[in-house]
Design a protein around this nucleic acid. Structure first.
Lengths: 204, 204, 204, 204
DNA sequence: CATGAATGAGTTTTCATTCAT
DNA sequence: AATGAATGAAAACTCATTCAT
């Protein structure tokens, strides 16, 4: 079936082009922000014509939303639960590994940080909803983990919802502060710091 | 001195008008964001003509910056240190009172939250600098308090800088989550939650 | 009649104020041009309120027109004819004196030059008409003098109208070139140059 | 090379469009002046959208400056020197031909006159500089010619600089007076008049 | 009569989007 | 499918003029 083969190749080319524009847009948006970045900036950087852009994306909003979806999905993928089954590694060690892993993933793609923590904040309702959903899921996941921990007697009595907000807030703040710029960081140290803080608090 | 009296009244009227426009702009910006709010929106809501706006403010940026300055100053004013001198109230109680007070202040003016935590984020370099400075001061204050606590043996061994980032992040997240909408909240409960979390952590 | 005396004083005060604003406007317009000079510039320089300005002049155009009228009248006054009656000074000497006198008058008030030769040019139809009339009168005066000179056998055969245009053009160009800036000039030398040129031409 | 051919056609179309807008702007500016002509006037007359204008020109100022550059270049091109080599036509005849030619060129494009002699006068510093340079070059050219004439014994003793100012002034005045409106003129007669005046003066 | 705050029509300019080639 | 010239709605901002005090 030579025709379907050709069609296939065309589809792949289209997909590649599409992703290329998305990649470029990530750079442009993360550097200039949403409003200060123009479609002109994107198409120039991508080396395509204005019209071409609109063959792949419906609007400036649309590409940003898609971008955000990709970012969120990537972030989600780098987050995995803790195995509490017998024979698994000690919980604390698992936590350190997990949190370090997330920080490493974020560290790899700092544009993510800028987009999710700066550019996308307060943009429009749809974006807000997406971020809310993402954070909500994370919070729910954390809260659930805490509840399970409470049942296992590992976590003290507390409002898991509120506690989850605090944990996530601390984490986000560390990311924003230490991974918002271009400085190198010791992700292991940060992960330890966040976990010690969240688990043991600051009292002597 | 009737002349100076009249001049005084005029000056006051001007100041009142100015503040009125600022107040209206606070509403408009907090509801629509910076880019989606036009000067037309502001002047319509204020019931003045376009030109009037420009008699009081140089530009759209200018009024937003001024607004932000006011908000930050207000926030700063609601934050006070903890008295560790002898005869002072127990530190823990003071902390609860302080944090509850801050939450109450923010609760009173929820537009503040939307502006500072959403609208102003990632707007432009000057705004970024202002927020950075504000958060930096807060962090420095917290870090210093932690260091003092360490010397008094109250706070455990840790990187005060990193810990301050976590504390502030947890606090910010709580504000954003619980005071970002229009729901009523129990600020005392939130303050307790944040403090317990920050001081004792979550382990059983 | 104390009342009329008071009224008189008031009238004089009004007149003085009016002239003061005109004087200031002359400075402002000659420096900034018509469009780039704002009413704000004028009232600030005059030390009066905006409303006051409009009590004395109907509009920005109006004050400029009035200004131009004054300037033109002043220029006209510094121009006098040549006495060809018996016993009068030699015509050539009279001409030198007259032209030098005009140049001196203009030299005294260089703002005149800027207003009449730059600012007022191409402003609007009414201004154009005024300048046209002024130049037309001058040309007519010169043409008439030339015709009289022809009858006396002093001036050669030529189209007096066209010749008047040339004479006036040469004069204007000299004023513009040598009195347009702030450099000191030798008006006598300029007058001689213009006259030699106009009377004898440039051929050896 | 079909591609370069298409690109070539596109480039030409762009250039044509650009020139069309310039032509229209020449009309609009020469009729209304710079300040009274709005971009709206230009684009309406050109039959294009607002945005199209800004694809070709950076600003209202920019198109005017470009327009002025074209006009000045055109004027310059219509001016040629006088050939004093042996075997050349008599100088006087050459001068008549040259001056008549310039007047004819100007006659052809009366908008030039209005723009250069009215609209552009006193507009802004850059425009002033351009006109100054143009007139300066002309003056310098005339002054140099006069100096050469003096060396050949054709031109009498005089300040060539001042004489050049007079010659140019006379010429300009004739252009302004006779070619400023829409009346037909006999350029040959005007050229003769200017030359007779400049060379022989008005004395009998 | 003086004041100066208020007005709002009018201007230039931007930029996401469309569409003929 | 790619191009990029054309579009025009919408925005910020100015400033001559008015009018209540």
């Amino acid at each position: 079936m030579p025709e379907s083969a050709r069609a296939e190749r065309a589809r792949e080319a289209r997909e590649a082009r599409r992703q290329q524009i998305l990649d470029v847009a990530l750079d442009v948006f993360s550097e200039k922000g949403f409003h200060d970045a123009s479609i002109t900036d994107v198409v120039k950087a991508a080396g395509v014509a204005r019209g071409t852009f609109y063959q792949y994306f419906d609007s400036k909003q649309a590409i940003f939303h898609e971008l955000l979806d990709q970012l969120i999905e990537n972030l989600r993928d780098s987050i995995v639960g803790v195995d509490v089954s017998e024979g698994a590694a000690p919980v604390r060690q698992q936590l350190v590994t997990t949190v370090t892993g997330i920080l490493d993933a974020v560290d790899q793609q700092r544009q993510f940080v800028r987009i999710v923590l700066r550019v996308a904040v307060g943009l429009d309702e749809e974006v807000d909803a997406k971020l809310s959903e993402f954070y909500g899921n994370l919070r729910a996941f954390i809260a659930m983990s805490l509840r399970r921990g409470q049942m296992l007697g590992l976590i003290r009595e507390c409002d898991p919802q509120l506690a989850a907000v605090c944990v996530l807030g601390a984490f986000r703040a560390v990311v924003e502060e230490y991974l918002g710029g271009d400085d190198k960081v010791d992700t292991h140290r940060l992960a330890l710091g966040i976990l010690e803080f969240s688990l043991k608090g600051l009292l002597a």
